[in-house]
Design a protein around this nucleic acid. Sequence first.
DNA 1: TATGACATAGAAAGCGCTTGCTGTGACGCT
DNA 2: AGCGTCACAGCAAGCGCTTTCTATGTCATA
Lengths: 349, 349
Amino acid sequence: MTVTLADVAARAQVSPATVSRVLNGNYPVAATTRERVLRAVDELDYVLNGPASALAAATSDLVGILVNDIADPFFGIMASAIQSEIGGPGGRAGGERLAVVCNTGGSPERELTYLTLLQRQRAAAVVLTGGAVEDAPHAAAVAAKLRKLADAGTRVVLCGRPPAPDTGAIALTFDNRGGGRELTEHLIGLGHRRLGYIAGPEERTTTRHRLEGHRAALEAHGIAEDPGWTVYGRYDRQSGYEATLELLRRDPSLTAVVAANDSVALGACAALRDSGLRIPDDVSVAGFDDLPFSIDAVPSLTTVRLPLAEAGARAGRIAMGREDAPPGGIATIRGELMVRGSSGGPRVS
Amino acid sequence: MTVTLADVAARAQVSPATVSRVLNGNYPVAATTRERVLRAVDELDYVLNGPASALAAATSDLVGILVNDIADPFFGIMASAIQSEIGGPGGRAGGERLAVVCNTGGSPERELTYLTLLQRQRAAAVVLTGGAVEDAPHAAAVAAKLRKLADAGTRVVLCGRPPAPDTGAIALTFDNRGGGRELTEHLIGLGHRRLGYIAGPEERTTTRHRLEGHRAALEAHGIAEDPGWTVYGRYDRQSGYEATLELLRRDPSLTAVVAANDSVALGACAALRDSGLRIPDDVSVAGFDDLPFSIDAVPSLTTVRLPLAEAGARAGRIAMGREDAPPGGIATIRGELMVRGSSGGPRVS
DNA sequence: TATGACATAGAAAGCGCTTGCTGTGACGCT
DNA sequence: AGCGTCACAGCAAGCGCTTTCTATGTCATA
């Protein structure tokens, strides 16, 4: 039914071994023979059997990319950048690799299952993006899995995720703490003293780090934080909307709202507007990530730009072994404060 | 080095065949034996060799998803929905499948290469999302590839893409023409007579259909279109920004701008604002897709909502054989006009 | 002319799994 | 008691490719 290597070999009047070598180009084959083989491949419309090849060669051309939420541009942008580097069609030489983007939905179980699936496929590399879940048993399970993957020869890269010690994984970490701190210091500098914070899911490292940065800034400026000023939620718009209403209910005197990310900030803006408050005249708003739409908010969003595409591209190159790992296997990537229209001085109460 | 089926078999004191059957659950195995095998699997931390399994069984558990731009939520949302349905971790029963999301960047060559790669992996199913490129030779090449995939037993589903006749592919098509028409009729109904149109890339079916709908509406209302009222671009914000400036230069008397999608519309809004024009008082703006951020634009965007998640989910189910194909293998999915703040009556000139 | 050295091609042994076919006891039936 | 049935389990033959090792012809060198 389907065309096999042997068929091509027969047609080209050579042995299967020769066909394989022509296809892989890793062994000298006379030019005329190569021609003949390639013609046969073409005429028969032969397509290599991936599984068979992977089995025999004990390697595959699959690269896994784990993301928390593929529908979120934060991950989409990184995934896109990673994929553009791992080759595949359009990429540079070095064999075509297939990117497997896996959507974990932020669930640790799924993350593990996907890692197993990738291990099963003998993936050439795996890139894990975004914050990790802090639950200890799961973290340990993931770490064990990563170690196993690394042992099996799969290159493991973390992109936008804290390092996983003793796993052999290369980490490209975002400086969420520093960014969070800088952002809040900017607001404090404008004169704000009563700042609400809309955090992401509580057990996520990203959430914690950004919040820590925020609190560090408060502390550094002698601002005592009211526990009611922090609300946890999800990393989406709706969560930001609801959390903002809650924040307003708890303390209507807040003059600024710092959001866990831009989507949340957008929700916050909507909630503020719906509550009859002006931005930034009545309340300033700040986001995080600087996703493409953030500049189009009205007023445009003050936020911390994370070089997602650059980080993804670098992670991709490292995963492909085309770039050296950073010293110590860990690199911290800083964000850049983008001051825009959504932040201003506090209203005079 | 790595644990194989045989190792597990030895440990459980059964034959490899039995282990395989326990793992696949497709053959009666005595409960006690199964127990023993599972324990051995656990103790040895055995992970099935995917390629070997795929080779022997002549099927794989990979499902391909082709998207034009993974960083664009339009595709991210569909991909997410598809993936949630094709099983994988967290999905329902029926074996765990790995979703391979492939970023074509809208390039036909890449699309073809990815299809070949998926064919090579003997993918269980392939879902192609988004508009197709209209270049005849490429369309034919893609069609041929799809036919071959279908012949090889791979289920092929098109999601948000026009049907591909004679390929055996199931098509879930968006009614871009109808949506485009409805949108423009809404604007005409508000009194607009001079409407600019910012189209996507010229050779894309989505672009053509939406534009056709727009023109059909104009024609139905006896509005003669000025050729200068249409500008082609890309499906992104920047393109919308630039195109709007161009439109304004060509005809400052336009009272409405219809964009190819929401991102473009956002860029249009920014350009209008930067030109000192108010929305919708001076110029109305309309988008397409109703992505999550569209409601947060100020004013919120009038657009056509496409049920991306629903369509993706359905495509996923069909790909998995868990839902019947629509009659004739083709289903048209309609959009819903969302009238919001960015559209209003034209200014009185 | 003899002799390595080299370039190229083939034979064949797997890679680790699935599955059709072949036992083999245990049962229930006549 | 005799025999067909059935539920399990194992044997062994591949699945289609890669790769080691070996064979062969060709050159340049001694």
